[in-house]
């Protein structure tokens, strides 16, 4: 095993263990915080796959954005308005069947695919390529997504204002 293997197993362990805590924890704040470690571990795996830009985007969007929003939501509803959020296990048998089928599918794909593996040393940066593709080939989709986000932003602001008046 070389250095990258150790790093891979470190991040994989972090991802899997924290994901287990997310699903098993009874305390919703603990679940939310350990989701952060899951997302962080996945970002580390992206780096090992040579997707440096995606890894940073993963941190900035999921940890810096979505997770913080989620925590705000959980904290404001749980501690301040005194609403107890209960977590528990329901519908065990159908879930077991679905996860079993899905897991079997994943494993069969994992063993069926011929993976191209390259050593992670000196991977080229994806930054320039990504930027060029986004603004040439996929420029229409890129602009449309921008419009969509703008509409969502204006919508959120207008809903928030309407409630206050």
């Amino acid at each position: 095993m070389n250095l990258y293997d150790y790093i891979f197993y470190l991040f994989a362990l972090l991802t899997v263990v924290s994901a287990l805590v997310v699903v098993t924890s009874k305390n919703i704040v603990h679940a939310a915080f350990s989701l952060m470690f899951t997302l962080f571990g996945i970002s580390g795996l992206y780096v090992l796959l040579g997707a440096d830009f995606i890894a940073v985007v993963q941190i900035i969007v999921y940890i810096g954005g979505i997770l913080i929003l989620l925590l705000f939501g959980v904290m404001l509803t749980n501690k301040i308005t005194n609403v107890e959020i209960k977590t528990g296990t329901i519908k065990t048998i159908p879930m077991a069947i679905i996860t079993g089928v899905f897991g079997a599918l994943l494993i069969s794909i994992m063993y069926g695919t011929k993976w191209s593996s390259a050593p992670p040393d000196n991977m080229p940066s994806t930054l320039q390529i990504l930027g060029n593709t986004l603004l040439t080939e996929y420029v229409l989709i890129f602009e449309l997504l921008g419009m969509l986000l703008l509409v969502a932003l204006i919508g959120a602001a207008s809903i928030a204002r309407r409630g206050r008046e």
Binding site: F33, I63, L127
Partner: peptide, 20 residues
């Protein structure tokens, strides 16, 4: 790594989560 300053902006969100 080429992402430099972008990484710095992103990783500071760990501080935010820690403060929370």
């Amino acid at each position: 790594a080429d992402v430099g300053i972008f990484f710095i902006i992103a990783i500071s969100s760990l501080v935010v989560a820690g403060i929370l």
